[in-house]
Deep mutational scan, measured.
Amino acid sequence: MSIQHFRVALIPFFAAFCLPVFAHPETLVKVKDAEDQLGARVGYIELDLNSGKILESFRPEERFPMMSTFKVLLCGAVLSRVDAGQEQLGRRIHYSQNDLVEYSPVTEKHLTDGMTVRELCSAAITMSDNTAANLLLTTIGGPKELTAFLHNMGDHVTRLDRWEPELNEAIPNDERDTTMPAAMATTLRKLLTGELLTLASRQQLIDWMEADKVAGPLLRSALPAGWFIADKSGAGERGSRGIIAALGPDGKPSRIVVIYTTGSQATMDERNRQIAEIGASLIKHW
Rank of each mutant, 00 (worst) to 15 (best):
F14Y: 09
L10K: 05
R238S: 11
L191H: 04
Y44P: 00
C18Y: 06
Y44Q: 01
E61T: 13
K32Y: 10
S96V: 11
A211N: 12
G114V: 03
W227D: 00
H285N: 14
S57D: 09
T138W: 10
N134G: 03
I229W: 02
A9D: 05
P60T: 12
H5G: 06
A182N: 09
W163V: 13
G236E: 02
L188G: 04
I206L: 13
I278W: 02
I244C: 09
G251H: 14
L79I: 05
Y260C: 04
L197Y: 05
G76E: 01
R92I: 14
N168K: 02
E145R: 14
A245F: 03
S254V: 12
G76I: 05
T158D: 01
P249W: 04
T261H: 06
I243M: 06
F149D: 05
V8P: 11
I54W: 08
L196D: 11
C121T: 04
V31L: 11
W208D: 05
E169V: 12
R255Y: 02
Y95P: 04
M153L: 14
A123T: 05
V82M: 06
P249A: 08
I244D: 00
G85I: 04
S80H: 14
K213H: 12
A9P: 15
I171T: 14
I229L: 07
C18F: 06
G142V: 01
M180R: 12
G154S: 08
G52K: 06
L111E: 07
D231L: 04
D99L: 08
P253G: 08
E61N: 13
R59W: 04
Q274L: 15
G43L: 00
F228N: 06
A276E: 08
Y260K: 00
F17C: 09
V29I: 15
D36K: 15
G76Y: 05
A280Y: 10
N98Y: 14
L136A: 06
A211R: 14
Q97D: 13
S51P: 03
L223V: 13
D161K: 03
R59P: 00
A40Y: 03
L55C: 08
P224A: 05
T179E: 00
T112V: 13
A16G: 15
P165D: 06
T262K: 08
F17P: 05
T116E: 10
I171H: 15
G239P: 01
A132K: 00
P65V: 04
Y95D: 01
L38W: 06
D269N: 12
A211V: 08
M184E: 01
Q265S: 15
C75E: 01
P217A: 14
G142N: 07
T262S: 11
S264T: 12
E87S: 06
V106D: 07
N173V: 10
G251V: 07
L197W: 03
R91W: 04
V214R: 06
T262D: 09
A16C: 13
T69K: 01
T186C: 15
P12C: 13
D129F: 00
R162P: 01
P181Y: 00
R189Y: 15
S104W: 01
P20S: 08
K252G: 10
M209T: 02
I244L: 09
E210K: 11
K252D: 09
N168F: 03
F17Y: 11
P165I: 08
L247C: 07
T179M: 01
D207W: 12
L79K: 00
A245N: 01
F6L: 11
E56F: 04
V21C: 15
I256T: 03
Q88R: 12
D48M: 06
G141Q: 07
I275E: 01
P60S: 13
E56S: 11
E210V: 14
Y95K: 01
I3G: 06
E35W: 01
L137R: 01
K284G: 12
G194D: 13
E46F: 08
I244H: 01
I278H: 00
S2W: 09
F22A: 10
K109G: 14
S104E: 01
F22Q: 10
T27G: 04
A132C: 03
G142D: 05
H285L: 09
S240W: 01
D155M: 01
T147E: 09
F228P: 01
S51C: 05
E164N: 00
V42C: 08
G216M: 10
L188I: 13
V117L: 11
N152Q: 15
K32M: 15
P172L: 12
Y44K: 00
V214G: 06
H94A: 10
L192V: 11
T27Q: 06
A225F: 10
A222P: 09
R271W: 03
L150N: 05
T178C: 07
I283H: 05
L223N: 03
T267D: 14
K232C: 01
M184I: 14
R176C: 09
N168C: 06
M1W: 01
T27W: 02
I45V: 15
A182R: 14
R255W: 01
N134K: 04
D250N: 15
P253I: 10
Q265N: 10
E46I: 07
A77W: 06
V257M: 05
L146V: 11
H5K: 13
P105G: 04
K252N: 12
E164A: 00
A276T: 10
V42F: 14
S221A: 13
G239N: 05
A34N: 03
S104P: 02
A77L: 11
S221F: 09
A148C: 14
I275T: 03
G141L: 04
Q88H: 15
A266T: 13
Q88A: 13
P165V: 09
E102K: 08
L79C: 04
G239T: 02
S122M: 15
I93A: 04
I275C: 05
D177I: 01
W286H: 04
I206M: 14
A123D: 02
G90V: 12
D99F: 07
E175M: 14
L167Y: 02
V214N: 07
L79G: 02
V214E: 05
G39R: 14
I171R: 12
A225R: 13
P224L: 04
V258T: 07
R59D: 02
P224C: 05
L219V: 10
I275N: 00
T262I: 09
T126Y: 04
V78M: 09
A15G: 15
N173D: 14
I259M: 08
P165M: 07
E62F: 07
I54L: 11
E87V: 09
F149E: 07
K144V: 12
G85T: 07
P65M: 02
T27R: 03
Q37E: 14
G242H: 02
Q204W: 06
G279S: 10
I93K: 04
T107L: 08
G194S: 14
K190F: 08
P224Q: 06
M127I: 09
A34L: 08
T138F: 10
R92Y: 10
T187V: 08
I278R: 00
A77P: 01
K232S: 00
T69P: 04
E119G: 10
L188E: 01
D33F: 15
